[in-house]
């Protein structure tokens, strides 16, 4: 028997097989088994309901992971997507979907659309989600996301009226049927709205964000400074946090999201009600969707910058507000929120 691997094919195949299996176990199988077994969902995490689990299947089947990540990396630029970097426990709940289908690969590898780690918190209006799924461009003009009209159907007698979509005229099908979501659309939205980061247990420090960017110079005059003395761009903050519903024009969407342009609340000389609505959310008017609370998502300075921007844009005439003003109102809000 020859010990030359190039003239002994059994020996050659044995080595290339053995070495590769050894390295694969070392670098993939063993670390994978360990990370699977060493992690459990955070105590504060809420398990998916059956409805949300069904929504996850729609999410996978439609290939949403091709464009949407669900991972907040531990680098500062990812702060936009979550309050803290993701940890292994955040994903510990993920399991094989069924006997045919594997564990959903939700971390993703491409961010053609926004990260969805906190989309349930960032965008808690089911009305918005349904409209966005039916025709993304009806709420975000520049979006290139596919429309999913096959998750909707024309209304038939007996459908609860509350489910009907208020589609802007430009995107309505000719014929004027009332469009309602199918079961699958509702499941998908239930899944999306369940997405938020769980709190780490008390005493557990979140991993730090790395690669902190140097402070930017002020980009325009009239900017509010935050705690660190950095200038904030109200226009950009508005685009990131408000524009999806209230639109770049400030006109909102008829029958779904109220206009800020010319709004008496926005133009009021006293900005107390406006800031309170942003801090606490608002659901008093049946004809519009729910306004989510932003108290935990935005700092005083950021809210002040947004409010000032909204009060001075689209022909509005309100006076700017300061971070201190927001801070005072927030102090009043807190005890109420604790109830």
């Amino acid at each position: 028997m020859s010990w030359n691997v190039y003239s002994n094919h059994r020996l050659f195949v044995g080595i290339v097989f053995g070495v590769f299996v050894f390295l694969s176990v070392l670098i993939a199988v063993q670390p994978a088994a360990r990370i699977q077994n060493d992690n459990a969902p955070l105590p504060t995490a809420v398990a998916l309901t059956d409805e949300q689990q069904a929504g996850l299947r729609v999410f996978i089947g439609e290939g949403c992971v091709a464009c949407h990540t669900q991972q907040v990396r531990n680098i500062e630029m990812d702060k936009a997507w979550g309050g803290r970097p993701a940890v292994a426990a955040d994903y510990a709940w993920r399991q094989r979907l069924d006997v045919w289908r594997a564990t959903p690969s939700t971390l993703g590898s491409e961010r053609t659309g926004p990260d969805l780690t906190e989309v349930g918190e960032r965008q808690p209006s089911d009305l918005w989600h349904l409209l966005h799924l039916y025709q993304p461009r009806s709420v975000v003009k520049e979006s290139i996301m596919p429309a999913f009209p096959w998750l909707f159907r024309d209304s038939v007698a007996g459908t609860p009226a509350g489910l009907a979509l208020h589609i802007p005229a430009a995107y309505r099908e000719p014929g004027g049927h009332t469009v309602v979501p199918t079961r699958r659309a509702q499941q998908l939205v239930a899944y999306l709205m369940s997405l938020k980061q769980a709190e780490l247990p008390t005493g557990e420090a979140a991993p730090a964000f790395l690669y902190v960017q140097p402070p930017k110079a002020a980009v325009a005059a009239g900017l509010v400074a935050d705690d660190a003395g950095l200038a904030l761009d109200g226009n950009a903050l508005y685009a990131s946090n408000c524009q999806a519903c209230h639109q770049a024009s400030g006109e909102g969407l008829k029958g779904a999201f109220p206009p800020l342009k010319g709004s008496p609340v926005v133009n009021n000389t006293d900005a107390t009600l406006m800031v309170n609505i942003i801090l606490q959310g608002y659901d008093a008017r049946a004809e519009y969707g729910v306004m989510p609370p932003f108290a935990t998502r935005l700092t005083d300075a950021e809210i002040a910058a947004i409010v000032s921007h909204e009060r001075s844009s689209w022909g509005n005439t309100g006076k700017p507000v300061t971070a201190d003003f927001v801070k005072k109102l927030r102090a009043l809000v807190k005890p109420v929120a604790a109830l």
């Binding site: 590769f20 993939a28 199988v29 990370i35 292994a88 594997a102 959903p104």
Partner: peptide
């Protein structure tokens, strides 16, 4: 080998799926 490792289920829950995917 890598196709078999990619499809065997026993270490693919939680982030195990992600390590295997990479």
């Amino acid at each position: 080998v890598l196709t078999v490792i990619a499809y065997l289920p026993w270490y693919q829950n939680g982030l195990g799926e992600t390590i295997t995917q990479g």
